Amino acid sequence: MKPSIAPLRKYLKAILVGLAFVAGLAAVTLLFPGARLLGHRVSEAVRGRITVLWYRSVARLLNLRIRCFGELMPTPGLVVSNHVSWLDIVALGSQAPLDFIAKREVADWPVVGYLGRRTGTLFVRRGDSHSTRSTAEEMVWRLKRGRRLALFPEGTSSSGEGVLHFHPRLFQPALMANLPVQAVAIAYRGAARPVAPFVGDDAFLPHLWRLLALERIDVDLIPCPPLTPGRFDRNALAQQTRAQILSALELQAPPLTLSA
């Protein structure tokens, strides 16, 4: 009996995604150190461009169809999103160079943790006040040096059916750096909606295997107008950005841009 087409395609996608991760390892190990010889500003631009291209290549291999209803702010600042899946990072990272803030557990994931560390991800240990303070200080330093940071203020992923409480303390670095905060709503559509959520006891590789079975993964990104820190304290920023995302998730408008 001949094997069906779908399983063969799934295995092929798995091999190609694996090769993409190998290419990512090669890039951050071999190219990133060499980029430092070009000077700080040029080095960061080169590294940012390589990282965005890598995210886009992974998105294409997974057939991640990203509809973006606008643009991420081009200036330094803090980008905050609702959190549904590790795919959120691929979708956002394919749009612009971003330094992500992730939970400490991700640093221990095979390959992914190493790639995260080398591409500028900051890992924070939840419930550890010292880790939280040091991460906040690093965030302020990077923001003042012209970086765009991205984090998920819910503190964990959800099923995508709603938006959890936003933790105000995560907005403090933007206030200290006096830089804008932009909310971006993320929504998975169609067949991907029940499969994309990465919650509970999910492990990365089994979840990736389930995603590979999908013909395509549709995801909408809806950037909202940036908020100026001078007009809000951290509690207000948390409330306002969450309200923006809740409102944006109800929109059904034609996309302004199309990528990946």
Rank of each mutant, 00 (worst) to 15 (best):
Q95G: 09
L251I: 01
Y11I: 10
Y188R: 12
R118G: 00
L221F: 11
R169Y: 06
S81E: 01
R142G: 04
N82I: 07
S157R: 13
F171R: 07
T121F: 04
T135I: 09
V52C: 07
G200T: 12
T228Y: 03
T119K: 04
F232V: 07
D128I: 05
L98Y: 11
A260Q: 15
H83M: 04
N63H: 12
A27H: 07
G113H: 10
S85Y: 02
S129V: 02
L151R: 04
A192T: 08
P255N: 09
G230Q: 12
L149K: 03
P74C: 08
N235P: 00
P180W: 03
K2V: 14
L62Q: 10
N63R: 13
D220I: 03
S4A: 15
V46Q: 06
L256G: 15
G116E: 10
G155Y: 04
L179C: 00
S131N: 04
H130E: 10
R216G: 01
V46T: 15
I66G: 03
Q244S: 02
P254Y: 08
F204E: 11
S81C: 06
G39N: 05
R49H: 15
S129N: 02
T156N: 01
R231N: 09
L256H: 13
L179T: 01
N178A: 09
Q244T: 05
L16K: 08
L246W: 00
P110D: 11
